[in-house]
């Protein structure tokens, strides 16, 4: 289930809830490991709010990364 997306000049970020951690996960973090800016962006992705655009290399998430909060969310960076 897609729960939110944001588009940027060079990056398109989306997060979807996953039931389990995929076997090929490249990075795995708990929400407490995010700094305030990344946390707000993550919350925006989950809530479907508008998130500031940004170039891909400055995204605070890795493509395929799973963030653990009250559910597990897989972040996609395109």
């Amino acid at each position: 289930m897609a729960v939110g997306t944001s588009s940027g000049r060079h990056a398109h970020l989306s997060a979807r809830e996953v039931e389990t951690v995929p076997a090929d996960v490249t990075a795995l973090r708990h929400v407490d490991q995010l700094d305030d800016e990344a946390f707000d962006q993550f919350r925006g992705l989950v809530d479907g709010d508008t998130v500031n655009v940004q170039p891909a290399e400055e995204a605070p998430f890795e493509d395929g990364e799973v963030i653990v909060h009250t559910a597990y969310y897989r972040v996609t960076l395109r």
Binding site: V21, A23, V25, A27, R29, H30, D32, Q33, V68, Y72
Partner: peptide, 17 residues
């Protein structure tokens, strides 16, 4: 932080931890 998820059985693999 995440070893509690391992103990819960939600993250079954060790390497990503």
């Amino acid at each position: 932080i995440l070893i509690k998820e391992y103990a819960k059985g939600k993250i079954p693999m060790e390497d990503p931890l």
